[in-house]
């Protein structure tokens, strides 16, 4: 009995505030936009019954998404940005994680803390920090002009490049930590054994270290890719008018155009796109847990 209450409390909370809202989003995505409050039709009413209500719903908004190329371009561009920035984050993060794992053991807690610290710092502030660096008269341009590397300021802020930098910067800890965890577990004698058996440094790294840190790489990549796909803050602060990302489109559809049904349809499609990487990620985590047991 007590157990049932214990289960029911968080269960009902999540049902009411997580699952039910999604059902509502899905329902509204099938409604029509209207000049009303709330701005969509049909409204459910008990008088007319469920059937009459259901007959009013249709997939018009989804058809609209395929017809207006803004949306599928935004999905494609989000995917492209998420994939590229995940690869970039991996390229930046792996050497750092590797360096941490090879550092003397008394340094490691400090290095670990240095990686975690930005994670606790406001996301918004970390994105904002780059606005001052990347702008036309920003520090990066001042620096590059100062050392004479360029003669004209580079235009970086409000371009996709700035978005890439922003994503790599803010999500870097998510990439470093799982890779570091994998590398930290790696038995150093394995590398020595590989070298003893005739591997060069580089081929030992390629044939032993990389395969054994595979799980960390996969976990880190998903942890960057999944949130990057629906990212809103970074494209709206660092990106320009040319930066198309679905999170931003959804926001504008909702707040600027007040087209709730289309915004809902955009959300449902984004969710469907995310299901695949989320399921893959979950599989990877489970496999890893099993391997550890």
């Amino acid at each position: 009995m007590r157990r049932a209450v214990l289960i029911a409390v968080p269960y009902l909370w999540l049902l009411a505030l997580f699952l039910v809202p999604f059902v509502i989003v899905f329902k509204i995505s099938l409604s029509d936009v209207a000049l009303a409050r709330p701005p969509y039709l049909p409204q459910f009413s008990w008088d007319e019954g469920i059937l009459a209500f259901l007959s009013e719903l249709d997939f018009e908004n989804y058809i609209f998404l395929t017809e207006d190329d803004l949306y599928w371009k935004a999905y494609l561009s989000s995917l492209k940005i998420a994939v590229f920035s995940t690869v970039l984050t991996l390229l930046v993060g792996y050497p750092i994680a590797y360096g941490m794992a090879r550092a003397p053991s008394e340094w490691r807690p400090t290095l670990m803390m240095l990686v975690i610290l930005p994670f606790w710092t406001s996301f918004l502030i970390r994105v904002y920090a780059w606005m001052g660096i990347l702008s036309n008269e920003g520090f990066l341009n001042q620096f590059l002009l100062g050392i004479g590397l360029i003669s004209e300021p580079l235009i970086i802020l409000n371009t996709n490049t700035a978005v890439y930098i922003g994503i790599v910067y803010t999500y870097l800890p998510f990439m470093i930590l799982p890779i570091y965890a994998a590398l930290d577990r790696l038995d150093g004698s394995l590398i020595e054994a590989a070298e003893d058996l005739g591997c060069s440094r580089l081929s030992a790294f390629w044939l032993v270290t990389i395969p054994l840190s595979k799980n960390g790489i996969i976990a880190g990549s998903f942890l960057v890719f999944i949130p990057a796909l629906g990212e809103f803050v970074i494209p709206s602060l660092l990106g320009g008018s040319g930066t198309l990302m679905i999170g931003k489109v959804l926001w504008e559809e909702f707040f600027s155009n007040r087209d709730w049904p289309v915004a809902s349809a955009v959300a449902v499609v984004l969710l469907l796109i995310l299901v695949i990487p989320i399921v893959l990620f979950q599989r990877n985590q489970e496999k890893q847990q099993e391997a550890e047991q």
Partner: peptide, 13 residues
């Protein structure tokens, strides 16, 4: 793993 825009939108609705 849910994008914040979706969580926010659904709760608002």
């Amino acid at each position: 793993v849910m994008p914040e825009v979706i969580t926010g939108l659904s709760l608002l609705l």
